[in-house]
């Protein structure tokens, strides 16, 4: 079953062409990693899908309810908002109030992401990994079946990342989620995602992870520092897996 369909998408900001003729489909249950260098149009693509950018040509269709996790640095950590209020955002938008049932559901969700003891902590006091899980809890509370994650790892340490992806896999199975994730980290995408989309204004590849290699990526994108670094990361992970 198709969850997202993008056909011949063009996005232009003034004279700058951000996306050129991008077409792809996302099927139910896919875990797609979108990778590409800075300025490749990854976040632009995500913004078109969530409806933040409306000025484009082409066709974008979404079949399902979307949950969105923006980059963590968009949160105003100075503002004293507790975690409980933070994750209840989609519930508030739907009902304009929090019923007892919804509050209990939110607490269950915090338990599910391992943050039950942080319910009344301030968002600004959370570590990067904890905030990442709180954002996931918020997205899940919206009853989304499609999750869109925009560089969820920025500012999160290795341990935090591991905990997050273990959790993500579990909830993906439990809820039959479809996930689209934008990332700079090519090694991570190879490790975690079932399908890889390589984007640099236009779509260079869209294939299952096992059918693509970092070498092939280098051929397509050239020797960017980013790819070399990420490639090393991949090699370490790959060796660990082989062992």
């Amino acid at each position: 079953m198709i969850k997202i369909r993008v056909e011949n998408l063009f996005v232009k900001f003034g004279e700058y062409q951000a996306l050129k003729g991008v077409s792809f489909e996302v099927k139910a249950g896919d875990f797609i990693g979108i990778i590409g260098p800075n300025g490749a149009g990854k976040t632009t693509l995500l913004k078109v899908i969530i409806g933040e950018i409306k000025d484009y040509t082409g066709k974008v269709e979404v079949y399902g309810k979307m949950g969105y996790q923006p980059q963590l640095n968009t949160v105003n950590r100075e503002f004293p908002m507790d975690v409980f209020t933070y994750i209840l955002l989609p519930v508030y938008v739907k009902n304009r109030r929090f019923t007892r049932k919804e509050r209990e559901r939110a607490l269950d969700m915090l338990k599910r992401v391992g943050l039950e003891d942080k319910a009344y902590s301030l968002v600004g006091d959370l570590s990067g990994g904890e905030l990442q899980r709180a954002s996931l809890a918020r997205a899940l509370l919206s009853d989304a079946d499609i999750l869109l994650l925009d560089e969820p790892d920025s500012g999160v340490d290795e341990m935090g990342k591991n905990t997050f992806y273990e959790l993500l896999y579990d909830v993906k199975k439990e809820r039959d989620l479809t996930i689209v994730m934008v990332s700079h980290d090519i090694g991570l995408v190879f490790k975690e995602c079932s399908t890889i989309m390589c984007l640099n204004k236009t779509l260079h590849c869209h294939a299952p992870t096992e059918k693509i290699s970092p070498d092939k990526l280098k051929e397509m994108f050239g020797q960017f520092d980013l790819w070399i670094r990420a490639d090393k990361h991949y090699e370490v992970e790959h060796r660990e897996r082989s062992i």
Binding site: I50, E52, Y68, P70, T74, V75, N76, F79, M81, T85, Y86, L89, V123, S135, R138
Partner: peptide, 8 residues
């Protein structure tokens, strides 16, 4: 607290 998510 989080304008981007609020908007979405």
């Amino acid at each position: 607290g989080d304008e981007k998510a609020a908007k979405f």
